[in-house]
Every structure is written in C-alpha cells, then in structure tokens.
C-alpha cells in the first residue's frame, strides 16, 4: 500500500490530480507541439496558412482516438468522481480566467498584424508570455505541477530555437529541432503515464463486479 498523507487539502489535490494520471492530456499536448516542429517544413510547400490548418483534421482524429481510449480503457479503470462545491468553484474560476485571457490574446494577436514585426528574441515574446501564463494557471487550478514545466519548456523553446538559429544556423529558427525534441519528450511522458496507469489499475475482477451488483 502506498503511504499517503491524510489531510483534507491533500485529499482534494489528490482527487483532482488523479484525473490527469492517465497521460492522455500529455499525448494531446504532444500533437500541439508537433505542429511547431513540422509546420515550418510544410510551409515551404503549401504556405504558412495551410501548413498550420492541415493539423486541424489531425487534432480532430487524435481527439476522437483519445476519447475512445478514455471511454474503453481509462473510464472502467479510473471510475467516476463528481466534484464538490469548492472544486467546482475553482474550475469555474479557471474557465472564466482562461476565456478572458484567450479573448485578450486574440485581440493582441490581431493588433500584432498592424504593428512592426519584431525580430530575433522579441518576435515570439507575446506567445511565450501567453504560454507561461496559461500553463501556470492550468498547473495551479488543476493541481498538476508538470504543467508548470511544460509551459516553461514550451515558452523557453522559442528562445533556445532562436539561439540555435543565430549561433549555429539551425533552419526555421531552430523550431523543428527544439519543438520536435520537446514534443517527443512530452509524448514519452504521456505514454509512460498511460501504460503505468493501465498496469496499476487492472479492470475490476468478477468478484468485485458481483459485490457491486449485490450491494450498494
């Protein structure tokens, strides 16, 4: 038996954190990062817009696959939880803040079209700030510490890529190398968590199903 602290706060965090134990969110994040690694190459052939837009059907299909995995593999092993009022309030606050932030960043994004384009390290500053804020909020509100690291790594990737480009001549501002590496790292975390989750949580055996059928 794993030793765990018994405290109301820790129990609340544990309940919430356990919803992200299956690694599916990591696998989806991998697909988002993959765009930053692959799109620069694609843009040479199909242009900037389509090199990003082509990922929409990919994300759609991946989302459906992950949904199917969640429904058939994860759900019977993970069980169901209905959060209490405190957690619900926290999730509502998170949703509202993210909505406001996204609208603000969308407006800033449009405004950026009319401003002189930055260069070098300052060019991607707005998106790095957005990433750090968004992932930090997700880490804080969802109680998933690794999201802080993802936000910092993703945001830092732009600077590392630029540094590789300016000092060693890496193509496409170093994005394919940096984000390719990072996406594979996050994919590995996701797969590790998914496999660990499935191994640690076998499907209920016949006895337990029979107990549930006869009791409760």
């Amino acid at each position: 038996m794993t030793k765990k602290n018994i405290s109301v706060e820790e129990a609340d965090r544990h309940v919430n954190r356990s919803a992200f134990d299956d690694g599916l969110v990591d696998i989806f994040l991998f697909s988002l990062l993959l765009m930053w690694a692959v799109a620069p190459y694609l843009s040479v052939f199909i242009g900037d817009f389509w090199s990003s837009a082509i990922f929409l059907p990919f994300w759609g299909v991946l989302f459906l696959v992950l949904y199917w995995i969640r429904k058939t593999w994860i759900r019977p092993r993970a069980g169901v939880v209905k959060y209490g009022p405190v957690r619900k309030k926290r999730m509502t606050a998170f949703t509202v803040i993210m909505l406001i932030l996204n609208i603000a960043f969308l407006i800033l994004g449009f405004a950026a079209f009319f401003m002189p384009a930055g260069s070098g390290y300052t060019r991607t500053l707005p998106i790095t700030i957005m990433l750090v804020i968004s992932f930090s909020l997700a880490g804080y509100f969802l109680d998933v510490p690794r999201f802080y690291a993802y936000g910092l790594l993703w945001a830092g990737g732009f600077f590392v890529g630029e540094w590789l480009y300016q000092n060693y001549g890496f193509v496409h501002h170093g994005y394919p190398v940096v984000f390719g590496t990072l996406s594979i790292l996050i994919l590995l975390v996701g797969i590790y968590k998914l496999v660990t989750f499935i191994r640690r949580n076998p499907l209920p055996d016949e006895d337990s199903v029979a107990w549930e059928a006869n009791n409760g």
């Binding site: 038996m1 109301v8 069980g79 169901v80 405190v86 337990s208």
Partner: peptide
C-alpha cells in the same frame, strides 16, 4: 476509514472504482 471519509469529504460523490484507486485498498 479516515482515508475513505477524507476523500469523500472533498467531493460531492465518487464511484467505488475511483475511491478504490485513491485509497489503494483491496475490494
């Protein structure tokens, strides 16, 4: 039982599978 009560205290409700996973107890 304290562990069970603590987990149930912070939620509205949860099913047997979820509670078992959190508490690491046998069925």
């Amino acid at each position: 039982r304290l562990r069970v009560m603590t987990y149930l205290y912070v939620v509205d409700s949860m099913d047997f599978v979820y509670l078992k996973r959190l508490t690491d107890m046998s069925w």
